[in-house]
């Protein structure tokens, strides 16, 4: 077996193809902002999660601190149980408030964490007690119409 010019061309072709994949992963995709190793899990119960999806971002003061990893319906209390994986670098007090917010008027939904003032920090696997559900537009309109009807009487 000898090396030929053909091998060089095919080698260049394969390298370019894999390079393009790496570009797609790093520059176009989100692989470069992916760190799975250093995180811990928190849970929260919401009466209504609206349009929250797995992989939705979790932000505190606008900074991305983690991602939603799982959403299930807890049939004991009939509330949505949201599992969040939070970056190990960030610790939150026990009385942290979890809100489901919307980025922009029609944007993606995410969880906003508003830290409280307690000194004890939430540990891995613990539950965030204070939560606020997503604002559902239909409910809002319903409330508005109801209050209008009340007022006009």
């Amino acid at each position: 077996m000898e090396r030929t010019a053909l091998d060089l061309w095919v080698g260049m072709f394969v390298v370019a193809g894999i390079g393009a994949l790496v570009v797609l992963a790093m520059k176009v995709g989100n692989l470069s902002t992916y760190n799975v190793s250093e995180s811990y899990q928190l849970q929260a119960y919401f009466t209504n999660i609206g349009g929250l999806k797995p992989q939705a971002s979790i932000k505190s003061a606008g900074v991305l601190v983690g991602r939603v990893t799982g959403i299930t319906l807890d049939t004991e209390r009939y509330e949505a149980k949201v599992v969040m994986s939070i970056d190990k670098r960030y610790q939150f007090p026990k009385d942290t408030f979890a809100n489901i917010l919307t980025s922009g008027l029609l944007g993606e939904q995410y969880i906003g964490l508003a830290p409280g003032g307690e000194n004890d920090m939430l540990k891995a696997g613990e539950v965030i007690k204070k939560t606020q559900s997503a604002v559902v537009l239909e409910d809002l309109i319903g409330k508005f119409l109801y209050s209008k009807a009340e007022g006009s009487k």
């Binding site: 394969v14 370019a16 193809g17 894999i18 393009a20 994949l21 570009v23 797609l24 520059k27």
Partner: peptide, 15 residues
């Protein structure tokens, strides 16, 4: 083997 590599190059060039 070639087509996935070509596709990756196509997409990167497109971006």
């Amino acid at each position: 083997i070639s087509l996935p590599l070509l596709t990756a190059m196509f997409s990167s060039m497109g971006v």
